[in-house]
Design a protein around this nucleic acid. Structure first.
Lengths: 186, 186
DNA sequence: ACCTGAACACCGTTCAAGT
DNA sequence: ACCTGAACACCGTTCAAGT
């Protein structure tokens, strides 16, 4: 079977799940595919574009809530779906965070939220959606990193409940803030 | 002058400002100090602890608002001070973000905010402060990365006003949410 | 067109040996 | 105690040469 962009992405995902982002090297991807490292560059311009493709894969798995839900519930559901997708893959949150910061990746995860906010008549839907994204992303990165360090025995105590509480609290406050500014009374 | 932890941290800050986080290597720090790379390990256990020390330096520069301010104003002022400190140094936001995620670093930037929130009687001051931290941090990382990519000519358009608007909007909404839950009416 | 082999210019970290 | 010199086990990326 010939090498291809899809095969490289697939091997990347496999390595990501098995060894984590820190051990995902171009050389290891090449090894997995039984090929020399240089061969990858015939299909992929560089490592960052590979990482962007992997981040897109994570973001593709976000289960966007149905449009019928009331704004507050929709926002909480969207934040939960985003968080779930980020946590579903090893180092998913960190991968997406760096890919988004660099502006790479073909998927803008805020699009559905911007639409829903605009539909509800909320002012500044873009900045609002981006703020909620950053809140969820930052929390997920911290949670995932600490949970992995706990698994490695580096960190002695990791409280999954606290992480969930942090998430619920942060999103709840933010959504309340959106509500207090929304043109429609609840 | 003999090598020391302080000298290493100083050289690290210099390299950070001049070349950025991506080019901050132990070997370069050693070169700057006119010493072999291995010598650093007599004073610093590893690279991550050096990065944590640099992150502490960034967080030390946060100008905590005076306690007399009303809660809402205090939170906005704190978020602004945090953002200013992160943006003051090259790659400051990314440095602090990764250091915080790893749980390294001697400084917990949320401490003043937790105190102020607790004093105001807000429920769950810890999760609330952490949520606001993540919001500010995520926005700052994105802003700093994009501004640097713009300076390098990689990104054609970078709107500093949009970044500021994103920040003001996100923090504003969040603080409104805190307000709507606070026990004291405004 | 697609891949190999080999190189270039780096990394973080360790450690015997010197002073 | 503190540093050098040299090594170990890696990196991302490039590119002539082969098929």
């Amino acid at each position: 079977m010939a090498l291809s962009r899809a095969a490289i992405t697939g091997a990347g995902l496999e390595i990501l799940d098995t060894y984590g982002l820190g051990d995902l090297s171009m050389r290891r991807v090449a090894d997995t595919l039984g090929v020399q490292a240089g061969a990858l560059y015939y299909h992929v311009p560089n490592k960052q574009s590979l990482l962007a493709a992997l981040a897109d894969e994570v973001l593709d798995a976000v289960d966007v809530p149905e449009a019928g839900l009331p704004l507050e519930e929709w926002l909480v559901a969207w934040a939960s779906a985003l968080r779930a997708a980020l946590l579903a893959r090893r180092d998913g949150a960190e991968l997406v965070a760096s890919s988004l910061a660099l502006g790479l990746g073909g998927i803008d995860p805020t699009v559905p939220a911007v639409d829903r906010l605009a539909e509800a008549g909320v002012a500044m839907p873009g900045p609002t959606a981006r703020a909620l994204l950053h809140l969820v992303l930052g929390q997920a990165v911290t949670e995932q990193t600490q949970s992995q360090m706990h698994a490695l025995g580096v960190l002695t105590s990791f409280d999954a409940r606290r992480a969930e509480q942090d998430f619920a609290c942060g999103v709840g406050i933010f959504v309340d803030g959106v509500s207090s500014r929304a043109p429609v009374a609840r």
